[in-house]
């Protein structure tokens, strides 16, 4: 399988703070990579660098051979192919559910209203929210909002999906409905990078677990190996915390 995302020596500082401290990571097409690590370890920064919501100080990132980090690269084109789901959903509150989903396909991809609408309905059905087509975001529960956010990202037909703690802001009873949608996506072969501490999901859906600390990748392994026999001390201590 071909390398799809290639991150080399990624460094990012905020003032004196070193958020990414030389991160190397390759992700294969169709691979589901789960990133864990303590708060402030640079997980979000790494994810946000992939679609250049953060600019690296040094290092490089390519997606499907296309450079993200070159100043001259067409970042908007890259962003079209990289879907992102945020902890806080970030639905557009002034647009109905269906308009949240069709906005970008009609504005950016210049799809016709009908085509975008048809696609939006298909995606709403996929995330189990067909009946919410005309609802306003603030009429939905957190779990429903996050599923709409996933549908919105999928409407651009991305090649990669990034999830930054998609269930951390949810009440416990809503976590599963979101993870189920993500598990389906993983099964369909979507390439995914997920920051999450849902260990059940990690075991069921992830191909690889990455443990980050202090802006570095400390350890990586397939889920079974990772949970049963972690090599590093820091990993073991962290796992004791969350398991």
């Amino acid at each position: 399988m071909a390398t799809f995302i290639e991150i080399k020596k990624a460094v990012k500082t905020f003032g004196k703070l070193q958020a990414l401290n030389g991160v190397d990571l390759s992700v294969q097409k169709g691979e589901v990579v789960l990133i864990i690590g303590p708060s402030g370890s640079g997980k979000s920064t790494l994810l946000r660098s992939i679609n250049r919501l953060e600019r690296l100080d040094s290092g490089s990132i390519t997606i499907d051979g296309e450079s993200v980090t070159d100043e001259g690269s067409d970042i908007r084109h890259i962003r079209q192919e990289v879907g992102m789901v945020f902890q806080s959903f970030n639905l557009f509150p002034h647009l109905k559910v269906v308009d949240n989903i069709t906005l970008s396909p009609t504005t950016v991809l210049k799809k016709s209203k009908e085509e975008a609408l048809e696609n939006a309905r298909r995606l709403l059905a996929k995330v189990g929210l067909s009946e919410k087509e005309h609802a306003w975001p603030d009429e939905l529960s957190g779990g429903q909002q996050q599923r709409v956010a996933i549908a919105r990202a999928l409407a651009m037909n991305p090649k990669v999906m990034l999830f930054d703690e998609p269930t951390s802001a949810l009440d416990p009873e809503m976590i599963k409905e979101v993870l189920d949608v993500m598990t389906d996506l993983a099964r369909e072969g979507m390439t995914m990078l997920i920051v999450s501490h849902e260990m059940g999901f990690a075991r069921a859906a992830a191909d690889r677990i990455i443990f980050m600390d202090s802006g570095q990748i400390v350890e990586e392994a397939p889920p079974e190996t990772f949970f049963t026999s972690p090599k590093e001390d820091r990993t073991r201590r962290f796992l004791e915390h969350i398991l």
């Binding site: 679609n51 919501l53 908007r76 084109h77 962003r79 079209q80 990289v82 879907g83 992102m84 945020f86 806080s88 970030n90 639905l91 557009f92 509150p93 002034h94 906005l103 970008s104 504005t107 950016v108 956010a149 919105r152 990202a153 651009m156």
Partner: peptide, 27 residues
Amino acid sequence: IPKGQMEAALALGLSRGNALRKIIIPQ
């Protein structure tokens, strides 16, 4: 307007101008 609104718009591939016009300014 929360920062996440602009970020979500950019992440969807919208230009900054479109994000301002369709997402930030209406709100």
